[in-house]
Structures are given as C-alpha cells and as structure tokens.
Design a protein around this nucleic acid. Sequence first.
DNA 1: AGCACGCCGACT
DNA 2: GTCGGCGTGCTC
Length: 828
Amino acid sequence: MKTDNRQPTTDNQIYFAQIILPLNLKGTFTYKIPDNLVEEIELGMRVLVPFGGKKIYTGIVSELHDREPETFAAKEIINILDEKPILPKEQLEFWQWLSNYYLSNIGEIYRFAFPSSLKLESETYLKLKPNVEINFENLDVNEMYLIQALEVRQMINLAEIEAFIPKKLIVKTINSLIDLRYIEVDEKISETYKAKEVAYLKVNKDVLRDNFLPEVLKSLNNAPKQKDLFLLILSKQQENEDIPVKKSFVFEEGNFSHSQLKALIDKGIIEEYLLQKDRLKSYEGKTEDLEALTELQKIAKSEIDQAFENDKNVLLHGVTASGKTHLYLDKIEDCINDGKNVLFLLPEISLTKQIIQRLEKKYGKSLGFYHTKLTDFERVEVWRKIRNNEIKVLIGTRNALFLPFQNLGLIIVDEEHDFAYRPREVSPYFNAKDAAQILAKFYSANVILGSATPSVESYYAAKKDKLSYVFLSKRFGNVDLPTVELINFEEEQKLQFTKGHFSFKLIEEIKGNLEQKKQNIILHNRRGYANVVECETCGYVHYCSNCDVVMTYHKYSREMKCHYCGQKATKPTVCPKCNSENINERGVGIEQIEEELQKIFPENEVDRMDVDSMRKKFAYEQLYEKIETGEAEIILGTQMISKGLDFDNIELVAIPKADALLHVQDFRAEERAYQLITQVSGRAGRVSGKGKILIQTYNPQHPVFKLIQENSTTEIYNHFLEERKKFLYPPFVKLLMIELKHRREDKTDRASQFLGSVLRKYLPAECVLGPEKSPIARIKNLYQYQILLKLPKGKNYENFKSLVLKSFEEFDEITGYHSIKKSVFVDF
DNA sequence: AGCACGCCGACT
DNA sequence: GTCGGCGTGCTC
C-alpha cells in the first residue's frame, strides 16, 4: 500500500496526503508530509493536523500523492498517531461509497464511525523531547513561554496553552518547536483509556502449604468474623480453582466489612491482586453445542450455501417462529469454521435477549457487542478487540458496520425490514441494510437478510434475482400459524354489540382465552390518552408552541406532551380562549384502551408497554419477568410489543382499532401495517399452534386485512408492488427527498421555491415534486419544506444524480440561503 | 462544523 | 456609549 505511487527518495520530491477531518465539510484536505514522516505514513492512519488558526484535529489519511495544490499553501502534518493503519482499506472504500451514494460529507461519516476518544482534538498533549539542549536565544516570546511551561509541568494540552499564547499563534508556535526538535506530541494520545482493573482475592500459598492451615485457624479463634471470612474465601477458591475470587464477592455474599478483610490481608493470610478486566461483560459459563437442523431447515441451508457459492446474497424469508435464528447460528458456525468472522446486525440491541443468550452459550468470550448504549471507553475496547481479531461474532446495531473488521466472512441483517436500520433523525443518513451489502462486497463476505416480513424492496430484489430467495414457510416443529379473524366493527356497532372500543365478540374471545390461563396481547399503536384536546364551544385546540402539532394528553402522567419536541404543559380545565368548561377529548390513545380493558376485566392483570411506561429503569425487565411467569395476563402495547417477546403461553392477539395503522399518509403505510400486524401475530401460539388474531376494523374489505387473513404472502407482496408501480414509488424509482429548514417561514418558502426551480431546469418535470410544506410544517421552531425527487433506476440514475448535485451547487451560490439547513435523503 | 469578523438593536 | 444577536466568509 505504501510507496506505490512514489519515486525512490533520491530526488527532493514533496509528498502530500488527503486527510479526512471530522467536520461536516465537503471533501478532504491536502497536507504536506514532512520528510521524517514520509517513510511511515500509510492510508488509513490517523494524523494530527492544524486547521484554521488554532484548531488541531485528528484526521485520517485517505490518499497519498505528489500533486502540489495550486490555489493554496498546504500546511504540514504535525504527527502520525498510529504505527499501523487504524482503518482497514475496506472501511475506507466503504466510507467513500457511503459519502458518494448518500451525498453526505465524508467527514460526517468519520465522525459517526469513530468513537470520540479515537479522534481527540484539544485534549492533545505536548511534552519536551528527552535530553534536549534548548537555545533560548532563537526563540520568540510564545515559544519561550511554552518551553518554560513544559519545564514546570511535563505535559500540557492544547486547551491549557490557550491561557498563555494567543489562539492564533498556538499552532505556529507548536509547529516551530516541533521543527526545532524541542517538543513532541505525546503518543499516549490514543491511550487515554485505561483497561478497567478488578480486585481479586486469594489465600496466601504458604497458608495452604504443609499443615499450616490448623495453625492459621487457631490464630483466628478470637476473631470469629475474620475466621468466617477466611473460610468463605478458602471454600470459594477451592470450589473451582480456575475461577478467581472477586473481592466484591465477599461483600455480596456475607455480612463482612472492609476492616475485617484488611486485617486478614495485613496478617498476610489473604492476598489482594488486580486483574485487567474487560469492561464488556462477557459470558463466563460453559459453551454449548447447537441442536441439529430440522429437515426444512436443512433444505433452506443448502439453498443458502448454493447462493453463497454463486456469490449471491440471501433474503431469508421465514414465517414467525420458523427457526430463522437456528439457521443463522448454523451459518455463523460454518463461517467461523472457515476461519472468518461474523457481523450480526440487529435493529435495536435491547429487545433481543433471546438471540444474545443463544450466541453467548455458543461462543462465550469470542462474542462482542457494539451499540449506542455503550460508553466511549467500551466502544474503544470493542474496537481494539476487533482490530486484534479477538472477536469472532460481533452483535451490533447499525453503527457496528464501521468497526475495523479483519477477515469478515458473513453479515447477517436480522429483521431486515425494520425501520430502525434507517432512522431519519441521525446524520449521516444511510440505510444499514443496503450499506451492509456494500460493506460485504468490499470484504468479499456473504450476506443474509432475514425477516418474517421482508421489506417490499428486498422482496422485489429477490424476485428480480438480485438476491437469492430462501423461504421457510412452516413454523418450527410444524406448528400451525395463527388464524386471523376480521371483526366488522361497524356492524357490531349497529347491533349495539359493543362496549367502548371493544366488540362483545372480542371481549368474549379474550375472556375465553383468560379462562384457559392463556395470555393476551393487545396492539394499539398510539401513545397517550387522547390525541386532541378541544373546546366544544369555540373549537380551540391545544397546539405545541414550538411545533405545528396538536399536543397529546397523557392521563397517566397528567400532562400534555408534544411528541416531537418533548414540550410539556398542563391540561386546560377551562378553554383559554372562551373560558368554556366544555373541554372534549378526541383520538384514542393507548392509555384510554388500557382504562377500558381494566374496566372490562377488573379481575385480571393488565400491563401497558409503550415508551412512556418503559421509561423507568428496568421497567422492561420487570415486565418481561411478569410475562414469563404468567403474572401478566393482558399485555397492551404500541409497536414496541412486536419485538422480542417470544413466549410460549400467548395465544391471542387483538388489534381493536386496526384502521389507525393505515391512516398514515406515507406510501409505506400499508407495508408497515402488514409488517406490524404479522410481527405481533407471530407472538401467538408459537408452541401450541392455536394462536388467534382478531382484527377489528371498519374496512374488513381492505386488501391488506383481507390478504393478511388469507395468509397469501405472494399476493400481498404483489399487491404492494402493483401499488408502488402504479404511483411510481420504490422499488420502481429512486426516491430522493430534500428537506429545507429555517426559523423564518418566508425564507424557507422562498429558498425551497428557488431550489425547486433550479432542479426543474435540469430534470424532467415529472421527476420533481414540490416544494411543499412538510407534513409537520414546523418542528422545534424550524419551518420545514420538502422537495421529492423520483429518479429513474438504472444507468441514467447517476446522470440524474450529478444534475441534482449541480443544482445544489447553484443553490449554494446564493449566500442568503446559507443559513438554511438542507438535508438530503437518498433512498428515502 | 467551528470560528472570526462585522454590522445592527437594547441595555448595564 | 457597549454587549451580543446572527449573517457571511473561510478553513488544506
């Protein structure tokens, strides 16, 4: 990799490097490589560079060349921070691809990809070079100050230097002192984290030798507590010689004090020692082997193997409880036996206990986790382990794609349809499911996308033979899939066979299920109690002051909440506008359904599972426990409930207000509704095969409900695909959404009109939709407008995309619009 | 993104 | 009269 485009060092060639900086700026930056670093520098290494007057950043080398820039003078790299490249070339290529495809700056990707302690800025430390003779006569005032400061304190960081050197001169001063070989950047920059140490105890070897033990015990006779403590440690130690005794153990186990332990240590009977302990909890129990695959799974496996042989990625479509996990485990095992490593992606780490438990039992310490809930130090530790090839299977969320994998052989994307793979609110915007396939290409690794309800895009790709389609149509152990029944709520209402939002029929079914000691799941995907609080007299509606949305009433916490900015308010008892007391609540939230259920089933345990009720620490674990023990009889939840709850005793799933799932204005609303209903249904009758799904609706003729009832997978996907084709949506076009935000509405409006007109200048009229106000016209006091681009797929797409970029350049020329936040969502 | 510079309003 | 609001320009 090194010196590939370089001449022998005989001529006085100057070399340059393109550096990725952790800034949301276009492109990379050119720096001069000082002679003494020319031999060391390689792609993917971290370097320290000055940037703009007073900042120093940790950048990544993305290119080495000898083209001197003509329009500016390149500054010099201060130092190299790694002995070996920290970023594998596959990752560098991956970053470049993401930046290109998703039109995001590579610096933003760098920021997202690296734990922050690997890209320190002003925490950088300087020190004097050992044994240098300093000639003070040639130093200027600032250089003198810095040297003097370093003579007093060995190390100083940049932030501290600001106190005595003008900001503008910091970098200049440091550079000249480095050139004079007086000071250097401390290499410890990358070592700011320390491996956590854990204290352990052991009995002094001499005590155990010969027949010393009785004597020791005797010496402790008038210190009974110490004697007990000693015996506890001794017995624990002898229980299993291989497991060291943690210091914390003695305080958890018995009622001992630190002074008692200290006495034993002082007497030399017990020794305390420290061991470096991974911050990450790794499984310490025994590892287990897998059960054999069933016949159906074996067939699926051979199909997967076949696909891999043809270098094709797999879409594993397996109905709920078909044993996809089992197949994953099998393929993971194959990959490891091949000497390669595995990345297992999950939409969210928290809701997937089961897979983690199974993998832990199998792989013990060579299993790693990576997700957003880790602290920065924990992330760095996983980072190092991956780099050192100590982890064979990494389970993680989308940000795990950026780890410096060695020898990656397989990526599994579980629940590939899940929207958590492409959150809209975090930048850079990318779809982890698609990105995983690209990353795999750079590593020549295989990919399995798995789901019971594949995304329409993946299904289509499989149909077009871009993915290899493997279908597990039967549940594990040939257990029946749940039956689906539609309840026509309008009819029931006419007959007055309803109570609140429940038909008598639904109530009877739940009752019957409860009598058989079976558990019930109720899905209602709307938070709070009432969606709208309204004055009957004057029509006043309570809006959020920061956003263009109605505030939701939460009865449980007795407040009004804005679900977009989090603002809270008290519920008005009289109308603030006309003083009428006639305040009405409209729109049914989950709390209202909960209230009704408790009234209908006063004897039974009803538990609610939504963002609001799960906010407390361990709330999820507690509920999980309650369901496992059977204490929870009716579990009511928002979409949260569709994930991870694999229990044997749930037989009924009811969706009292199913129409609400379709009343979302989004071309994916139907797909989402289908996925949600099917996923929740999958919780029912996983063992007994007697699961029953009840969907209450005003539209029993709606194709989505009909097709779910008929359980005809092919037809439902055909239905989706027809609709998408008819109205020109993905997968038939490439969708690109541009969003403009600003706190002044007129400005946002004008800017988006202008951008729209520029886009129309370059693109065919039918490709540009809008601009128009976003569905929520204002969030957190920012007005939002959007432009939707429907671009043709295939060869022309790249041309169109370059025209979009051209339009952006033209837009950026208007300085007045620079304060407008522009976000681009490719594959929206 | 972050920072400096420069130009206008409401205040010690 | 000054502090500080943010619009504008620049960073290898």
